[in-house]
């Protein structure tokens, strides 16, 4: 903003203040009513939608659904968008680049948009940004709220040609909640992890897969707590997906 604009604004605001009303009671009564309503909403929600107890933590059992609270659904959905890791959309976009760009934009915004104009329809750039960010966040939150959480108990994978080791591996896969992040032939959550239908096409050997299970790339948690034979069977199963087991 130019010096003249600042001087003009200060003068205008001083005049507005001079013709204004005292904070008490003209502003405070509105504040009190709206804040009171918000707290009333909280109380009504607390009474009508009771909090429930979940399953107690068991770090050894990995049968879990890693779902954040609703206000982080957008971040969770970003992970899904960038889940299938390749050179063009690495997962670091969702875990680091996009969130940090948004945070930096948020903090420095007043130093980007500095013109004296305040009328809504005369600020197309700012309003365009607002519409883009707000609709994006709402859409991702809605997606996060409406996607199914993995598979139902007792559901199996539509695969054929499984041998004994692969069947054991499939059981490990199903028992440890892998399908709450990965999809195989349309079964399981579509992310945040990549789809595994053709995992075997990568041509990994079991040692490499076991090592991955123990020290995976974030955000996937480590499965080092599983027994070695389970990890071995799981690796056999995964390394044959799309090639031996279809």
């Amino acid at each position: 903003m130019k010096k003249a604009d600042k001087v003009a604004y200060d003068k205008d605001y001083a005049a507005a203040k001079k013709d204004g009303k005292p904070f008490f009671p003209y502003a405070i009564y509105k504040d009190t009513i709206i804040a009171g309503l918000a707290i009333l909403v909280v109380i009504v929600l607390a009474i009508t939608v009771r909090v429930e107890m979940g399953e107690p933590v068991n770090p050894a059992s990995t049968d879990f659904l890693p779902r954040p609270d609703w206000y982080f659904y957008f971040a969770f959905e970003l992970l899904k968008i960038f889940a299938n890791q390749n050179a063009l959309t690495p997962v670091i976009m969702a875990t680091f680049m996009v969130p940090n760009i948004l945070i930096i934009l948020l903090v420095i915004w007043p130093f980007i948009d500095r013109g004296p104009e305040r009328r809504i329809w005369k600020r197309p750039f700012a309003m365009g940004t607002a519409v883009l960010v707000i609709s994006g966040l709402c859409y991702l939150t809605f997606l996060g709220a409406s996607t199914p959480e993995g598979i139902a108990k007792g559901e199996t994978l539509p695969l054929t040609g499984l041998d004994a080791a692969a069947s054991a591996g499939e059981a490990v896969y199903l028992a440890n909640g892998c399908s709450s992040c990965h999809m195989i032939k349309g079964v399981g959550a579509p992310g945040p992890g990549p789809e595994l239908t053709n995992e075997g096409a990568k041509g990994w050997d079991n040692a490499k897969m076991v090592q991955w299970m123990k020290v995976p790339v974030a955000p996937m948690p480590s499965f080092a707590s599983l027994p070695p034979e389970d990890l071995e069977n799981l690796s056999t199963f995964l390394n044959g997906l799309g090639t031996k087991y279809k």
Binding site: D63, F64, R67, P68, A218, P219, M220, P221
Partner: peptide
Amino acid sequence: WDQKAYWATVVAVNIFAS
């Protein structure tokens, strides 16, 4: 300290750590 919260936080902290 339930399963859902625990594993969601494991994933969230993995994201920070990456």
